[in-house]
Structure formats: structure tokens, C-alpha cells
Design a protein around this nucleic acid. Structure first.
Length: 267
DNA sequence: GCTGCATGATGAA
DNA sequence: TCATCCTGCAGCA
């Protein structure tokens, strides 16, 4: 589930439901018992998202850092929450609802220095845009020799891209994932950044990744595109390209599989 | 019940 | 590049 869009969406929905509330926290699994006890009964001020990281601000200045990793997942109920599973690292409850967090890579209290260190190693976030974001991204890309498909997963270059968006962005930009990042033109770098802003924005709004041109495929909105037609190349090895009909290829890159169309993304 | 797999990231070799 | 950590689910017996 979790690329940058999931994180920003979680921040927005949880903020809306819980910001300003006094929360009861515990760790049914027991692996975050001390932290939960430290926060129990305090008021949540707000939640900041950056890249794939979440920072929860509590009264009295505490910060809770959450990173979902590959398996992490939030579940939220407005009424009648189920019993927590064995994997529920953190549970919190307020009048407005109940939240369970399972499987995170990080769920920890953070001192200010540690947060600065985390933020310092992250590149620009297309969902937290600043004026210099596109330029920082383009410069970073131009400086790298690694394949562009590998570079896009580097959170120091662009924060929030994961394996689905990397494959889909490269398809839409017509760039072969194995091409050297440094050989990507400035215009293509700008296009990749714009695609990231647009695609992650759609994902943040509707809660799932849809990268196909919904109008061209006969749907009114991205959210109307049915499962199975939402992506151009991700996990479509051997199937026909939705644009040209050629077979989708795949290759391992920086330990993860990337898919592409050899015709639409020539080397 | 078991196996394998997944939209992530790190540290050692 | 590999091993490791983090869970839940589908697919199978």
C-alpha cells in the first residue's frame, strides 16, 4: 500500500478526525508499550507528512515518527472497532474513532535532532511542493550515473516514489528504466516531476494508484477506472501494452522488479 | 496449516 | 549484492 500518496492521505484523514483530541493509546502487541504509555491521555496537535514519513505532534512537544515500510498499514473505524490482531503495534482511541497501526518499519518517539536528520536525507516531495523542488530533482538526476529506474527509488532524489509510481512515471515519460539518469534530458526531468505531482496527487485524493488516462479509456474520473485497468505496466509482464500492444517486459533493478514497454520506452 | 509474495529501507560484506 | 526486519493475505494442500 504505502507510497507517498498513502502517507499524505493518512495524514489528512487522521488529522481531520483526531487533531485537537485527547487520545487513549496502547500497544496491544507490546512492542511500543513505553511510547504508547508516554503519549496516553495527551492531545494530538497535528500530523505532518513528508515523503513516506509521518510526524505526529503532541502537546508538550513530543513527536511520534511512523514509517510504514513495505507492510505497515493503518485501519480506522468510527464505531465498533474489532479486537486488535497480534500484529497491532499501536492502537489509539478517541470519541471520533479508533485507529490501529500494524507492521510499521518505524514507530518511535523522536527527539528534534533525529527528525532533522531524517528530513535532511530526503529529497523534494512532489506532495509537499516548494519552488525549488523541480530544480533540485533535475539537478540530482543529471548528477547520477545509475539507471534512472534505480534513481527514482532513491528517497534522497525525490521523496515518496515507490515501485509502482517509478514504473508508471517512466512509461508515461517514454523513458527506458535502464537509461542512465544523467542522460535524461532537462525537459524529461521536468516531465517526470510533473507526472509525480499529478499522479501522486490523484492517489492522495482517491486512495489508490491510477495512472492510466481515464478519459481516453472511457471513464469520467480516475476513481471510476476498474481494478485491472488502472496501471500501464506495473506487474503486467507478458501482457500487451495498453498503448501499442507490444509485450510488457520486466527486469530487476536495485533489487526490485521494474516493468516497461520496449516499444514505448526504447533504449 | 503451509508457502510465497508484497507499493520499503538498512546495514554488513 | 545479500540478509534482515516489519505483517497480512492469497493460494494451495
Amino acid at each position: 500500500m504505502p507510497e507517498g500518496h498513502t502517507i499524505h492521505r493518512a495524514a489528512r484523514l487522521q488529522r481531520r478526525r483526531f487533531a485537537g483530541s485527547r487520545l487513549s493509546l496502547d500497544s496491544p502487541q507490546g512492542r511500543f508499550s513505553e511510547g504508547a504509555a508516554a503519549l496516553d491521555g495527551r492531545t494530538l496537535i497535528t500530523i505532518d507528512a513528508y515523503g513516506k514519513h509521518l510526524f505526529y505532534r503532541w502537546e508538550d512537544g513530543e513527536t511520534l515518527h511512523v514509517h510504514l515500510g513495505l507492510f505497515g498499514r493503518f485501519r480506522m473505524w468510527t464505531s465498533d472497532p474489532p479486537e486488535p490482531t497480534d500484529g497491532t503495534r499501536l492502537r489509539w482511541r478517541a470519541d471520533a474513532g479508533t485507529l490501529h497501526l500494524s507492521g510499521p518499519t518505524a514507530c518511535e518517539l523522536l527527539d528534534p535532532d533525529a527528525e532533522v536528520a531524517i528530513r535532511a536525507r530526503l529529497g523534494p516531495d512532489p506532495l509537499a511542493p516548494t519552488p525549488d523542488g523541480p530544480v533540485r530533482f533535475a539537478r540530482g538526476l543529471a548528477r547520477r550515473r545509475a539507471p534512472v529506474g534505480q534513481a527514482l527509488l532513491d528517497q534522497a532524489l525525490i521523496a515518496g516514489i515507490g515501485n509502482v509510481y517509478r514504473a508508471e512515471m517512466l512509461f508515461l515519460a517514454g523513458i527506458n528504466p535502464l537509461r542512465s539518469a544523467g542522460d535524461v534530458t532537462t525537459a524529461q526531468a521536468d516531465q517526470l516531476w510533473s507526472l509525480a505531482v499529478t499522479l501522486l496527487g490523484i492517489g492522495e485524493r482517491i486512495g489508490r494508484i491510477v495512472t492510466v488516462d481515464h478519459a481516453r479509456r472511457g471513464y469520467r474520473r480516475p476513481r471510476d477506472v476498474p481494478r485491472g485497468e488502472r496501471l500501464y505496466v506495473y506487474r503486467r509482464h507478458g501482457e500487451p501494452c495498453l498503448v501499442c500492444g507490444a509485450q510488457i517486459e520486466r527486469v530487476a533493478l536495485s533489487g526490485r522488479t521494474v516493468w516497461w514497454c520496449a516499444t514505448c520506452q526504447p533504449s
